[in-house]
Structure formats: structure tokens, C-alpha cells
Amino acid sequence: MATGSGAAAAAADAEEKESGSRMITLTSNEGKAFVVTEASARQSATIRSMVDDGGCVDKGFPLPNVDSKTLARVIQYCDEHGNKEAHTVDERAALAKFDKDFIAELDADKAFLYDVTMAANYLHIQGLFALTTQCIADTIKGKTPEEIRTAFGIEYDLTAQDEEEIKEEDTHA
């Protein structure tokens, strides 16, 4: 990942399109530019379709919904998955290890995990979105209702009547 602006030189563009080594500029909502390889950017279905539809590659892509901190982390994922091969067993194992470490780090900072999830959703980065949503689902899975409330800041506001209803539904089940 390189930070800068306008690094994708227009002259070399046609040639590089063939080899897939074009560089693409992504701009966060704070105006910070991130220059990434096309292979990395293509992890995002949103950007992929814009690139394939032609145009706008030189101008770069402004991402008004993504802040710099989140974009940097998203690009870290895209670089790993876009720029590296996953043909051999070893290569796939290395990617799986990357994913595991990547999500473990995010899991420690829930607010940031939500930001990355939202960015992955907005940019349609399937692998990353699956990774983060599964991580949140796993957090719900392993917990009692009380622990879930604590983990996600859910306030217990059920009335006695609600509790009665739930009990009734359970016995009917």
C-alpha cells in the first residue's frame, strides 16, 4: 500500500491495463488518497464494476462513506487477498492465517469492527464482509442472553407481561 495522489500515470495506462498492474487511487471522506494495485481494488465489487465500466480510473474513486482509518484497514485486507496467489495449499493456509489474525485484531475493538463491516458492505468486498459478520455472529453465539446484553449494550426492558408471553411461546414450542 502506498499513500500519495495521482500516481496512476495516464500514459502507461493502456499497457498496464493488459498486465493488470495499473494503480488506482481511493480517497477517504477526509480527503486522504490511497494508491493501490488494481488487483487489490478489484476485491471490491463496487470498484470492480466502476473500473470495468470504463472511465474514472485516472481521477480515482472518492469514498464519501469511509474514513481514513477504516479505509487503511480495508486496504490491508484487499492487498493481501488481491496481490497474493492462493493456488497451493501453503498459499491458502497463509491467507487463512492472515484472516484469522486480521479478525482477531478487529474483534478487540467492536466500534472499529462495525466500521469495517459497514465499509465492506458499502464496497461489496464479499470475503471481508463474510469475515466480519461471522465474527459478530460468533460473539452472539457463544453467550448467554445476559452476556449478549452486556457485550452489545442492550438494555433489559422486558415487562412482566413480555416475560409471561415468552414463557408461553416456549411451552407451546
Binding site: P145, E155, Y156
Partner: peptide, 9 residues
């Protein structure tokens, strides 16, 4: 999850 809160009912 129905027993988390009213919103989750």
C-alpha cells in the same frame, strides 16, 4: 434473541 429486550422481541 427474543428475550434480549423489547426491541429484540
Amino acid at each position: 434473541t427474543c428475550c434480549l429486550s423489547r426491541a429484540w422481541r
